[in-house]
Computed example of a mutant assay.
Amino acid sequence: MKLIVAGASSLLGTEIPVQLDKSIDTSKLKNVVIRDYSEYPDDVKAEFSGADACIWTVTLTPLRTSKAELKRVCQDYTKLGFEAIYEAAPSRPFRFMYLSAERIPRDPTKMPVIMADYHNMRGMS
């Protein structure tokens, strides 16, 4: 299985443990650093090719960030990342898991009590 963990160095991303048995050939593991989540060079897209799944953990702390920056990171970057993976011809079926903040409402008509705009925006990603 080829798995992409986007945002692996983030607080949330580091909590995704990848436990490997000592008998597993770790030469197949690759660390690909993306400097800007709005740009995916061809060499990065080549690494995405044939992927079976992606766990997307790219996020920001909402209390310290503007609404525009939150939208750019939580929505725009997610869309651009998914498009880059799609262009790289992932395997079929391909699974994309978007990890979001705690208690994000699935029903956009329900307004959370705390940070309603942020929570609803995250649910629209």
Rank of each mutant, 00 (worst) to 15 (best):
E15P: 03
I16T: 00
I16W: 00
I16S: 02
P17D: 10
P17Q: 12
V18R: 09
V18N: 05
V18I: 12
L20T: 09
L20F: 11
D21Y: 11
K22C: 09
S23Q: 12
S23T: 14
I24C: 12
T26D: 11
T26F: 10
K28C: 12
L29M: 08
L29D: 08
L29K: 07
N31L: 11
V32N: 10
I34T: 06
I34Y: 07
D36P: 04
Y37S: 07
Y37G: 05
S38K: 14
Y40K: 00
Y40R: 05
P41F: 05
P41L: 06
D42F: 02
D42S: 13
D43P: 01
D43M: 04
V44A: 06
A46K: 14
E47M: 07
E47H: 07
S49T: 14
G50T: 04
A51G: 06
D52H: 08
D52R: 00
D52L: 02
A53K: 03
A53E: 03
I55N: 05
I55A: 01
W56T: 01
W56G: 00
T57S: 09
V58A: 04
T59M: 10
L60F: 04
L60S: 08
P62V: 04
P62N: 04
P62W: 01
P62T: 00
R64K: 13
R64F: 13
T65R: 00
S66T: 15
S66N: 06
S66Y: 04
S66R: 05
L70K: 02
K71T: 14
C74Q: 13
Q75H: 15
D76R: 05
K79H: 13
L80I: 14
L80Q: 12
G81E: 03
G81Q: 03
F82W: 11
A84M: 01
A84I: 07
I85V: 15
Y86G: 12
A88C: 06
A89I: 10
A89C: 14
A89M: 12
P90W: 03
P90L: 05
